[in-house]
Simulated assay, not measured.
Amino acid sequence: MPRHRLICILPMRLTVALLVACAACAPGRAQPASPPPSPAAAAECGEPRVDPGERWTDPSPHRCAYVAVNGIRLQYLDWGGRGEPVVLLHGSGSTAHSFDDLAPRLTDRHRVLGLTRRGHGHSDHSDGGYTIAQTAADVLAFLDALGIRRAHLVAHSLAGAEITRLATEHPDRVASLVYLDALPDWQAEWAMVDAPVARPTPAAGFGSMAERVEWLRRYFYGFWTPALEADLRYGRPNREAVDALDADAVPLAPAYAGLRAPVLVIHTTRSLRTRFPWLLEPTAAPGERDAAQAWLNRHHNPNALAVVERFRQQVPGARVVVIEGHHYIHNSNPEPVVAEIRAFLEHSERALRMPPGASHTRRVSRVVVEP
């Protein structure tokens, strides 16, 4: 694992289209613990994509189930646990399985659930409704259907727009907010100079699941985990949903200043290891490696830090952490992410028990992760 040191500071858009293309070839009450998964429950996850003759089993200890909301059926994962519920919301093009690595590490103190949004995975792929307003309403209806009065919401990527809307419109339903590389400012990213080195793509597509996995490991992630594999195998690409949600989120000006719940932001900067992993191979051209590093230094990382600073100015009481890692930060850097989330949730629950008017702010911090 990378080493990380904590430095106290006083006072991409994600290539979703590429992933989709690759996949296509009041105080809340403690929730009761859910039953452990069974073979029958595992069948509710739907059929994973496997090659002929291949056998694969999802190793994550969750139960799969469905809930009817707003005229559609959404799949959710239930890792069990006791305590205030935590609801995990995935990024565009992914599924709740992308949290398979993270979720089991929170169940000792929380009931942990993951919702797969409409148009993704084995949730219904509706004829419309692919707006942030609608998917945020789906999250609210999910809480209602499960009898959850208030939850900690953990969002990755696009889901940051959903939890921001839900928290500003229904603050009484939100115990706290966690943004995992989920402060979308895509207008700024699209205005940014394009990366000078293109990610290699297979000319003839993929002949097997093993080839897909190897390409993603080598060129997109630079690493691989069971959660990423489950996310790939249970994913059901829907270009309409991805494009419509991304387009809807772009012009939104997030009303961060209206947030009233405790907030944790874990945002990323990038390195060659986490953005251009194939350029670290011995056969990579030194000129491409230097050009990629210069682009990170001059464009990508300054933009990421500017996004964080704009958020910090709007929500000065938030805990803000910057980590060098992949966009899927909860998969690439699990140790610091889990430690931050666990500490934050514990602090947030203490804050919820404070008398009205008491402060629950924490110092803003920056985490630098060294290779």
Rank of each mutant, 00 (worst) to 15 (best):
Cys45Ala: 06
Pro2Gln: 13
Asp243Trp: 04
Arg362Cys: 03
Val154Pro: 02
Trp295Cys: 00
Ser348Lys: 00
Ile163Thr: 09
His326Tyr: 10
Ser98His: 03
Ala141Pro: 01
His360Met: 04
Asn238Cys: 13
Ala40Cys: 04
Ala230Ile: 00
Arg29Glu: 13
Leu280Arg: 05
Pro251Gln: 06
Gly81Asp: 14
Leu252Thr: 13
Glu44Cys: 09
Thr168Val: 15
Gly160Phe: 11
Leu228Asn: 12
Glu340His: 07
Trp56Ala: 08
Glu54Cys: 02
Pro336Ile: 12
Ala306Cys: 05
Arg260Asn: 12
Asp290Glu: 15
Asp248Phe: 10
Met209Gly: 13
Cys25Ala: 15
Phe276Asp: 10
Tyr179Ala: 08
Leu180Gly: 04
Asn333Lys: 15
Val367Glu: 11
Phe311Cys: 08
Leu74Ser: 08
Thr107Asp: 14
Arg82Asn: 13
Arg275Met: 08
Trp79Met: 00
Val307His: 04
His330Pro: 00
Glu349Ser: 07
Ala68Val: 12
Tyr66Leu: 02
His170Ser: 11
Leu232Pro: 10
His120Asp: 03
Leu245Pro: 05
Ala96Asp: 07
Asp78Met: 14
Arg199Trp: 03
Cys22His: 14
Thr135Met: 06
His125Thr: 09
Ser98Gln: 07
Val50Cys: 08
Leu106Cys: 14
Val315Arg: 15
Arg55Leu: 08
Pro48Gly: 06
Arg342Ile: 08
Arg29Pro: 00
Phe344Glu: 13
Leu252Arg: 13
Gly119Ala: 10
Gly128Arg: 07
His327Thr: 12
Arg49Phe: 00
Arg362Leu: 13
Val367Asp: 11
Arg218Pro: 11
Leu305Arg: 15
Gly129Cys: 04
Ser348Arg: 06
Gln31Leu: 03
Asp78Ile: 15
Leu18Gln: 02
Val250Lys: 15
Ala159Leu: 11
Ala261Tyr: 07
Ser271Phe: 01
Pro286Arg: 01
His90Glu: 03
Arg55Ser: 04
Ser34Trp: 09
Ala291Phe: 02
Ile341Cys: 04
Thr15Arg: 07
Leu272Ser: 06
Ala204Phe: 09
Leu279Lys: 01
Arg289Tyr: 09
Ala291Thr: 02
Val250Pro: 05
Leu177Ile: 13
Arg362Tyr: 08
Met1Ser: 14
Phe223Ile: 10
His299Arg: 05
Pro37His: 04
Arg363Ser: 06
Ser38Cys: 02
Asp51Val: 07
Pro371Val: 11
His110Asn: 07
Val250Glu: 15
Phe223Asp: 15
Glu84Lys: 09
Asp246Pro: 04
Phe223Leu: 10
Ala284His: 12
Ala42Glu: 03
Pro286Asn: 06
Val337Asp: 14
His299Leu: 01
Phe223Gln: 13
Thr164Val: 15
Gly258Ser: 04
Pro251Gly: 01
Trp56Asn: 04
Phe276Pro: 04
His299Asn: 05
Asn303Val: 11
Gly46Val: 01
Ala294Arg: 11
Glu211Asn: 14
Leu89His: 11
Ala227Gln: 08
Ser34Cys: 06
Asn303Gly: 05
Leu158Asp: 07
Gly207Ser: 12
Ala318Gly: 10
Pro184Tyr: 14
Trp56Cys: 14
Thr283Gln: 15
Asn70Ile: 11
Leu140Gln: 03
Trp215Ile: 13
Arg173Gly: 00
Arg363Met: 09
Gly235Asp: 08
Asp108Cys: 05
